[in-house]
Amino acid sequence: MFLGVDIGSSSSKAALIDKNGGLIGSQVINQGTGTDAARDIAAILLAAAGVKRQEILYSVVTGYGRMIYRDADAQVTEISCHGLGVARTLPAVRTIIDIGGQDAKVIRLDGEGRVVNFGMNEKCAAGTGRFLEVMARVLGREITALSALAAQSTRPVQISSVCTVFAESEVISQLAAGAAPADVARGAHLSVAARVAGMCGRTGVAPQVAMTGGVALNRDLVDAMAIELGVGIQVPPAPQIMGALGAAYYAQAKYARRPA
Protein backbone atom coordinates (compact mmCIF):
# COMPACT_ATOMS: atom_id res chain seq x y z
CA MET A 1 0.00 0.00 0.00
CA PHE A 2 1.07 3.58 -0.62
CA LEU A 3 0.39 6.66 1.42
CA GLY A 4 0.11 10.28 0.36
CA VAL A 5 -0.02 13.10 2.91
CA ASP A 6 -0.84 16.73 2.10
CA ILE A 7 -0.17 19.23 4.89
CA GLY A 8 -1.65 22.57 3.91
CA SER A 9 -1.71 25.88 5.74
CA SER A 10 -5.24 25.35 7.01
CA SER A 11 -6.01 21.63 6.56
CA SER A 12 -4.31 18.24 6.56
CA LYS A 13 -5.21 15.46 4.16
CA ALA A 14 -4.11 11.88 3.63
CA ALA A 15 -4.94 9.23 1.03
CA LEU A 16 -4.14 5.55 0.92
CA ILE A 17 -4.00 3.47 -2.27
CA ASP A 18 -3.45 -0.22 -2.93
CA LYS A 19 -0.76 -1.60 -5.19
CA ASN A 20 -3.00 -1.16 -8.24
CA GLY A 21 -3.67 2.46 -7.46
CA GLY A 22 -7.18 1.90 -6.12
CA LEU A 23 -8.24 4.29 -3.36
CA ILE A 24 -8.56 2.52 -0.02
CA GLY A 25 -9.40 5.51 2.12
CA SER A 26 -8.78 9.19 2.80
CA GLN A 27 -8.97 11.71 5.62
CA VAL A 28 -9.38 15.46 5.79
CA ILE A 29 -8.96 17.49 8.98
CA ASN A 30 -9.42 21.24 8.92
CA GLN A 31 -6.22 22.03 10.77
CA GLY A 32 -3.00 22.70 8.95
CA THR A 33 0.72 22.71 9.45
CA GLY A 34 1.97 23.04 13.01
CA THR A 35 -1.12 21.41 14.56
CA ASP A 36 -1.59 17.93 16.06
CA ALA A 37 -3.75 17.06 13.09
CA ALA A 38 -0.83 17.59 10.74
CA ARG A 39 1.29 15.25 12.81
CA ASP A 40 -1.40 12.59 13.29
CA ILE A 41 -3.31 12.59 10.01
CA ALA A 42 -1.56 9.50 8.63
CA ALA A 43 -2.04 7.53 11.85
CA ILE A 44 -5.72 8.50 11.95
CA LEU A 45 -6.24 7.35 8.37
CA LEU A 46 -4.40 4.07 8.94
CA ALA A 47 -6.41 3.36 12.09
CA ALA A 48 -9.68 4.12 10.30
CA ALA A 49 -8.71 1.86 7.40
CA GLY A 50 -7.43 -0.88 9.71
CA VAL A 51 -4.00 -0.79 8.10
CA LYS A 52 -0.71 -1.24 9.92
CA ARG A 53 2.19 1.14 9.37
CA GLN A 54 4.42 -1.74 8.21
CA GLU A 55 2.03 -2.39 5.34
CA ILE A 56 2.91 0.96 3.79
CA LEU A 57 5.61 0.35 1.21
CA TYR A 58 6.33 3.99 0.51
CA SER A 59 4.93 7.39 1.43
CA VAL A 60 5.18 10.90 -0.02
CA VAL A 61 4.33 14.18 1.68
CA THR A 62 3.30 17.35 -0.11
CA GLY A 63 1.89 20.77 0.73
CA TYR A 64 3.07 23.86 2.53
CA GLY A 65 4.00 21.86 5.64
CA ARG A 66 5.96 19.16 3.79
CA MET A 67 9.36 20.42 4.92
CA ILE A 68 8.70 19.86 8.60
CA TYR A 69 6.81 16.60 8.23
CA ARG A 70 9.16 13.83 9.31
CA ASP A 71 7.31 10.57 8.64
CA ALA A 72 7.39 10.29 4.86
CA ASP A 73 9.95 8.70 2.55
CA ALA A 74 10.03 11.59 0.10
CA GLN A 75 8.46 14.94 -0.61
CA VAL A 76 7.03 16.34 -3.83
CA THR A 77 5.55 19.80 -4.37
CA GLU A 78 1.81 20.32 -4.34
CA ILE A 79 1.97 21.43 -7.96
CA SER A 80 3.10 18.04 -9.20
CA CYS A 81 0.85 16.17 -6.73
CA HIS A 82 -2.31 18.02 -7.69
CA GLY A 83 -1.35 17.47 -11.31
CA LEU A 84 -1.00 13.73 -10.94
CA GLY A 85 -4.02 13.35 -8.64
CA VAL A 86 -6.27 15.08 -11.16
CA ALA A 87 -4.68 13.47 -14.22
CA ARG A 88 -5.55 10.01 -12.87
CA THR A 89 -9.01 11.03 -11.65
CA LEU A 90 -10.14 13.14 -14.62
CA PRO A 91 -7.79 12.25 -17.49
CA ALA A 92 -9.21 14.77 -19.97
CA VAL A 93 -8.33 17.74 -17.76
CA ARG A 94 -5.62 20.07 -19.06
CA THR A 95 -5.99 22.98 -16.64
CA ILE A 96 -6.31 22.75 -12.87
CA ILE A 97 -7.28 25.65 -10.67
CA ASP A 98 -6.39 24.92 -7.08
CA ILE A 99 -7.30 27.41 -4.40
CA GLY A 100 -5.67 26.58 -1.11
CA GLY A 101 -5.59 28.26 2.27
CA GLN A 102 -2.84 30.69 1.41
CA ASP A 103 -2.08 30.25 -2.21
CA ALA A 104 -3.85 29.83 -5.47
CA LYS A 105 -2.36 28.06 -8.42
CA VAL A 106 -3.12 27.29 -12.02
CA ILE A 107 -1.52 24.13 -13.34
CA ARG A 108 -1.36 23.18 -17.01
CA LEU A 109 -1.06 19.50 -17.89
CA ASP A 110 -0.08 17.82 -21.11
CA GLY A 111 -1.93 14.86 -22.61
CA GLU A 112 -0.09 12.50 -20.31
CA GLY A 113 -0.83 14.30 -17.09
CA ARG A 114 2.58 15.94 -16.81
CA VAL A 115 2.86 19.49 -15.54
CA VAL A 116 3.95 21.71 -18.42
CA ASN A 117 3.45 25.07 -16.80
CA PHE A 118 2.03 26.61 -13.69
CA GLY A 119 1.37 29.97 -12.11
CA MET A 120 0.94 30.93 -8.49
CA ASN A 121 -0.47 33.91 -6.67
CA GLU A 122 1.77 36.72 -5.58
CA LYS A 123 2.86 36.92 -2.00
CA CYS A 124 -0.39 38.35 -0.65
CA ALA A 125 -3.52 36.39 0.25
CA ALA A 126 -5.82 37.99 -2.33
CA GLY A 127 -7.58 35.30 -4.33
CA THR A 128 -6.92 32.52 -1.82
CA GLY A 129 -8.91 30.58 0.75
CA ARG A 130 -7.74 32.99 3.43
CA PHE A 131 -9.64 35.79 1.72
CA LEU A 132 -12.85 33.75 1.89
CA GLU A 133 -12.21 32.88 5.54
CA VAL A 134 -11.95 36.57 6.35
CA MET A 135 -15.14 37.30 4.41
CA ALA A 136 -16.98 34.48 6.21
CA ARG A 137 -15.85 35.89 9.55
CA VAL A 138 -17.07 39.39 8.68
CA LEU A 139 -20.41 37.89 7.67
CA GLY A 140 -20.56 35.83 10.86
CA ARG A 141 -20.99 32.58 8.92
CA GLU A 142 -19.14 29.32 8.63
CA ILE A 143 -17.03 29.17 5.48
CA THR A 144 -19.07 26.16 4.35
CA ALA A 145 -22.22 28.32 4.45
CA LEU A 146 -20.90 30.91 1.99
CA SER A 147 -22.01 29.06 -1.12
CA ALA A 148 -25.67 28.72 -0.14
CA LEU A 149 -25.69 32.30 1.09
CA ALA A 150 -24.21 33.69 -2.11
CA ALA A 151 -26.67 31.70 -4.20
CA GLN A 152 -29.44 33.96 -2.84
CA SER A 153 -27.73 37.10 -4.05
CA THR A 154 -29.66 39.40 -6.36
CA ARG A 155 -27.29 42.37 -6.59
CA PRO A 156 -23.71 41.31 -5.79
CA VAL A 157 -21.61 44.07 -4.26
CA GLN A 158 -18.44 45.16 -5.94
CA ILE A 159 -15.36 44.61 -3.76
CA SER A 160 -12.76 46.87 -5.25
CA SER A 161 -9.88 46.27 -2.83
CA VAL A 162 -7.54 43.51 -3.83
CA CYS A 163 -5.80 43.43 -0.48
CA THR A 164 -7.53 41.15 2.03
CA VAL A 165 -7.15 43.64 4.87
CA PHE A 166 -8.63 46.51 2.88
CA ALA A 167 -11.35 44.27 1.48
CA GLU A 168 -12.36 43.38 5.02
CA SER A 169 -12.89 46.99 6.02
CA GLU A 170 -14.56 47.73 2.69
CA VAL A 171 -17.04 44.92 3.29
CA ILE A 172 -17.69 46.01 6.88
CA SER A 173 -18.63 49.45 5.66
CA GLN A 174 -20.82 48.01 2.89
CA LEU A 175 -22.68 45.89 5.44
CA ALA A 176 -23.05 48.96 7.65
CA ALA A 177 -24.50 50.82 4.68
CA GLY A 178 -27.16 48.13 4.32
CA ALA A 179 -25.75 45.67 1.76
CA ALA A 180 -27.34 42.19 2.05
CA PRO A 181 -25.01 39.46 3.36
CA ALA A 182 -25.86 37.30 0.33
CA ASP A 183 -24.73 40.09 -2.01
CA VAL A 184 -21.50 40.50 -0.06
CA ALA A 185 -20.82 36.74 -0.20
CA ARG A 186 -21.40 36.71 -3.94
CA GLY A 187 -19.21 39.80 -4.31
CA ALA A 188 -16.41 38.00 -2.46
CA HIS A 189 -16.70 35.05 -4.84
CA LEU A 190 -16.61 37.31 -7.87
CA SER A 191 -13.55 39.03 -6.46
CA VAL A 192 -11.67 35.75 -5.97
CA ALA A 193 -12.77 34.57 -9.41
CA ALA A 194 -11.50 37.76 -11.07
CA ARG A 195 -8.19 37.52 -9.27
CA VAL A 196 -7.65 33.87 -10.16
CA ALA A 197 -8.76 34.51 -13.75
CA GLY A 198 -5.92 37.03 -13.97
CA MET A 199 -3.50 34.25 -13.08
CA CYS A 200 -5.14 31.96 -15.61
CA GLY A 201 -4.49 34.62 -18.23
CA ARG A 202 -0.78 34.33 -17.57
CA THR A 203 -0.62 30.55 -17.88
CA GLY A 204 -3.36 30.19 -20.47
CA VAL A 205 -6.41 27.97 -20.07
CA ALA A 206 -6.97 24.81 -22.11
CA PRO A 207 -10.12 22.72 -21.71
CA GLN A 208 -11.05 20.69 -19.83
CA VAL A 209 -10.77 22.67 -16.64
CA ALA A 210 -11.05 21.31 -13.11
CA MET A 211 -11.03 22.95 -9.71
CA THR A 212 -9.48 21.30 -6.67
CA GLY A 213 -8.90 22.11 -3.02
CA GLY A 214 -11.45 22.68 -0.29
CA VAL A 215 -12.61 25.88 -1.97
CA ALA A 216 -13.88 23.79 -4.91
CA LEU A 217 -16.65 22.54 -2.59
CA ASN A 218 -18.05 26.06 -2.77
CA ARG A 219 -20.43 25.65 -5.73
CA ASP A 220 -21.19 29.33 -6.05
CA LEU A 221 -17.49 30.17 -6.35
CA VAL A 222 -16.99 27.46 -8.97
CA ASP A 223 -19.88 28.98 -10.95
CA ALA A 224 -18.39 32.46 -10.60
CA MET A 225 -15.06 31.11 -11.83
CA ALA A 226 -16.73 29.39 -14.82
CA ILE A 227 -18.50 32.59 -15.81
CA GLU A 228 -15.33 34.63 -15.41
CA LEU A 229 -13.33 32.23 -17.61
CA GLY A 230 -16.14 31.38 -20.03
CA VAL A 231 -15.53 27.63 -19.73
CA GLY A 232 -17.22 24.79 -17.88
CA ILE A 233 -15.42 23.69 -14.71
CA GLN A 234 -15.44 20.18 -13.33
CA VAL A 235 -14.95 19.32 -9.71
CA PRO A 236 -13.57 15.87 -8.93
CA PRO A 237 -15.19 13.88 -6.16
CA ALA A 238 -13.45 14.86 -2.89
CA PRO A 239 -11.53 17.79 -4.44
CA GLN A 240 -9.61 18.39 -1.20
CA ILE A 241 -7.73 15.13 -1.41
CA MET A 242 -6.34 15.54 -4.96
CA GLY A 243 -2.93 16.60 -3.60
CA ALA A 244 -2.75 13.70 -1.12
CA LEU A 245 -3.95 11.29 -3.79
CA GLY A 246 -1.31 12.53 -6.22
CA ALA A 247 1.27 12.13 -3.45
CA ALA A 248 0.16 8.51 -3.02
CA TYR A 249 0.56 7.92 -6.77
CA TYR A 250 4.03 9.47 -6.56
CA ALA A 251 4.80 7.10 -3.67
CA GLN A 252 3.77 4.18 -5.87
CA ALA A 253 5.93 5.40 -8.77
CA LYS A 254 8.92 6.16 -6.58
CA TYR A 255 8.66 2.74 -4.97
CA ALA A 256 8.73 1.09 -8.39
CA ARG A 257 11.77 3.13 -9.39
CA ARG A 258 13.70 2.79 -6.13
CA PRO A 259 17.22 1.48 -6.51
CA ALA A 260 17.24 -2.31 -5.96
Binding site: Y64, M67, V76, T77, E78, I79, S80, D103, R114, V115, V116, N117, F118, M120, K123
Partner: peptide
Amino acid sequence: NAFSLAQYETRVQALLETMEN
Protein backbone atom coordinates in the same frame (compact mmCIF):
# COMPACT_ATOMS: atom_id res chain seq x y z
CA ASN B 1 9.40 41.73 4.19
CA ALA B 2 8.54 41.20 0.56
CA PHE B 3 9.89 37.64 0.50
CA SER B 4 8.59 34.30 1.79
CA LEU B 5 11.11 31.50 2.04
CA ALA B 6 8.49 28.73 1.97
CA GLN B 7 6.94 30.12 -1.21
CA TYR B 8 10.35 30.47 -2.82
CA GLU B 9 11.24 26.90 -1.94
CA THR B 10 7.98 25.49 -3.31
CA ARG B 11 8.40 27.37 -6.55
CA VAL B 12 12.00 26.34 -7.04
CA GLN B 13 11.10 22.72 -6.33
CA ALA B 14 8.19 22.90 -8.73
CA LEU B 15 10.55 24.22 -11.41
CA LEU B 16 12.91 21.36 -10.60
CA GLU B 17 10.09 18.83 -11.02
CA THR B 18 9.13 20.41 -14.35
CA MET B 19 12.74 20.24 -15.57
CA GLU B 20 13.05 16.63 -14.37
CA ASN B 21 9.88 15.70 -16.27
